[in-house]
Simulated assay, not measured.
Amino acid sequence: MTVRLRAHHLLCMLTFVGEGYSPAFIANYRRIAERLTQGEQIEMIEGPDDLCRPLCHDPQTHCFRESVRGRDAAAAKAVSALIGRPVDAGMRFLPDAAMIARLRQAFAKGSIRAACRDCEWTSLCDAIAAKGYDGALVHGA
């Protein structure tokens, strides 16, 4: 199987420690974190993804907003520059340990965090990155 992610979730997965919008969201995210850690491939998509699924029953959820599409564009641009190839819909890759480490290093330095501007989770992500990602649930295969 393949985990389908929107671009800004490439950043969110770096600091996921089991907190989120609802119990259903958290349970789903934990399953996806385990799948990624076990070596499932990521497929980049536009719009709501596998992480958004528990929230998409509500058409007013933030997953459909233009501001979130803006986060995706900013994240795709930053990650593309970091890895040296476009992060576009349809791209597939394995989030191995080297890739996760590279993303986390850049995230901690702030160089790929333009998409995080005004995010409600910023302070939590800052604290997790400052502690060396201790407790983060996504690990490279």
Results as ranks from 00 to 15, higher is better:
Val3Leu: 05
Arg4Ala: 03
Arg4Cys: 02
His9Asn: 02
Thr15Leu: 05
Val17His: 05
Glu19Gln: 14
Pro23Gln: 09
Ile26Tyr: 07
Ala27Asn: 07
Asn28Gly: 07
Tyr29Ile: 01
Ala33Leu: 00
Glu34His: 08
Thr37Phe: 02
Gln38Pro: 03
Gln41Tyr: 08
Gln41Lys: 14
Ile42His: 00
Ile42Gln: 00
Glu43Leu: 05
Met44Tyr: 08
Ile45Gly: 07
Ile45Asp: 04
Gly47His: 03
Pro48Lys: 01
Asp49Asn: 08
Asp49Ser: 01
Cys52Asp: 05
Cys52Tyr: 06
Cys52Leu: 03
Pro54Met: 03
Cys56Thr: 15
Pro59Cys: 09
Gln60Trp: 09
Thr61Glu: 13
His62Gln: 12
Ser67His: 15
Ala73Asn: 10
Ala74Asp: 14
Lys77Leu: 14
Arg85Pro: 01
Arg85Val: 01
Asp88Ala: 15
Ala89Met: 06
Met91Tyr: 10
Arg92Ile: 07
Ile100Gly: 06
Ile100Pro: 01
Arg102His: 10
Leu103Glu: 02
Arg104Lys: 10
Arg104Ala: 06
Gln105Tyr: 07
Ala106Ile: 06
Phe107Gly: 09
Ala108Gln: 08
Gly110Asn: 02
Ser111Met: 05
Ser111Cys: 05
Ile112Val: 12
Arg113Ala: 03
Ala114Asn: 11
Ala115Gln: 07
Ala115Asp: 03
Glu120Thr: 14
Glu120Pro: 13
Asp126Phe: 06
Ala127Glu: 13
Ala127Asp: 13
Ala127Thr: 11
Ile128Asn: 03
Tyr133Leu: 06
Val138Lys: 11
His139Arg: 15
His139Met: 14
Ala141Cys: 09
Ala141Lys: 11
